[in-house]
Amino acid sequence: MPINRDYIGRTFPPTDPYEVSRVKIREFADAIGDSNPVYRDRAAAQASGHPDVVAPPTFPVIFALGDTGSVLTSPELGINFAMVVHGEQRFVYERPLYAGDVVVCESTITEIRAAGRNELLTIETEVKTVDGAHICTAYNSLVERAGAA
């Protein structure tokens, strides 16, 4: 089943503010097996020129998509989630994400297209502080695999 092209350009309401904490950064760094002190120790981060503990580059995956799930799973959009795999992911940074940042994400479905026999849907997410400073843009492409023909 093709994904409903009417959803191209659909924007999602801004997410609730997400506060990036040192504890969460440490937990995430532990989970990816990364012992870098700038993920744990404020003094080490400051010695590297940062105001506070730095978040790993893929950290925004925790909050970027917010509650877009209710739209992505809606029958009207027409994605069969049993067949969905993560196709591509990209983060483009304006500046690093730090502990203490309070961020809001705004997501837009920018692309829905055929990719071979599969369908591909891309969501672009702007991650900004509550004060409006742009931190990064995340691009998340989901692939709905075609069933056995």
Binding site: G33, N36, V38, P56, E88, R90, Y93, P96
Partner: peptide, 25 residues
């Protein structure tokens, strides 16, 4: 992807140096 990110940040020495990071799975 996070492991590939760790590979990059370990090499460059500072996670804040990463300005663009993308992969296809």
């Amino acid at each position: 992807m996070a492991q590939a990110g760790k590979y990059v940040t370990d090499w460059v020495g500072d996670p804040g140096a990463v300005v663009d990071f993308g992969v296809r799975f």
